[in-house]
Amino acid sequence: MTEPLLKVEGLKKYFPIRKGVLSRVSGYVKAVDDVSFFVNKGETLGIVGESGCGKSTTGRMLMRLLEPTEGKVVFDGKELTNISNDDMRKARREIQMVFQDPYASLNPRHTIEKILEEPLIVHGLGDAKSRKKKVRELLEIVGLSSYHAKRYPHQFSGGQRQRIGIARALMTNPKLIIADEPVSALDVSIQSQVLNLMQDLQKDLQLTYIFIAHDLGVVRHISDRVGVMYLGKMVEITESELLYDKPLHPYTQALLSAVPVPDPNFVRDQILIKGDIPSPSNPPSGCTFHTRCPFKMDVCTTVVPKLEEAEPGHFVACHLYGERAALINR
């Protein structure tokens, strides 16, 4: 086995909650709470989960746009979590992000050329002439035209702006792209254009993707492996086919069964889970899903289930599986 391109171990982000005139810390939002995973070169790892489960926070910590509270991020053999800010800036050449709202992330007063050139200037790459050439090249690659270089962001549609966001991420020839809900704001017909583009680019440029989204159909389409997050934890992670065809974690099962399918004849066993997602500032004890889980056992309210390999290559954090299950069943 080759080393994965990215390895994440025990990643945590606790945001302090401050109260009162003295802004004393009265508690923590456990946005990401002990998350570990890896991403192989050339693959797409999808990360899914409902609003507030910690997907974006995880993505931002990988690039250290947000400092982790704890944990280790190793990229291409280099530990990113203990290098200087200067070295981190250099490393960012190889890891780039694409965001949900391309409009918010493109400076409205700059031309597309200026926006695309910027990462090259920041990283001191190329001279003025080669930078302009690269801008035109990338515009063509993402399906726009070189004459678009002189225009401003507001002159483009949502889908075109996302193409610009992708072009910008590709300017420095990165190895890893972290895409946080890159198609969530787009209409269905435009969404499929952007997904196809991302797949083509991955093949042509040997890119590795972390694809964060809440749309389970989109994630299945694009991902080789998928991780499911719930309240700051990774509760299941495995190959995409396995996860969708044979989900093991009760939350994954409920989540998948809740997705409306575009087929009026499809009959499903819907597992309607009751209630809302608890607050990450006061997560339930033990398994954080126990307040909504139809299979809850006594042990679930006290013992945190570890992410363990329940079946070959299929990791799940639930007491129904693994060593503890064997003990309970005995």
Binding site: S189, S192, H221, P262
Partner: peptide, 24 residues
Amino acid sequence: KGLLQSVPDMRFKKQRLYSIPGNV
């Protein structure tokens, strides 16, 4: 027709999504 073919279906993986060219 185009819209229906553009949606990813969670039940199975299509190799490539159909996409309607152009913009809304």
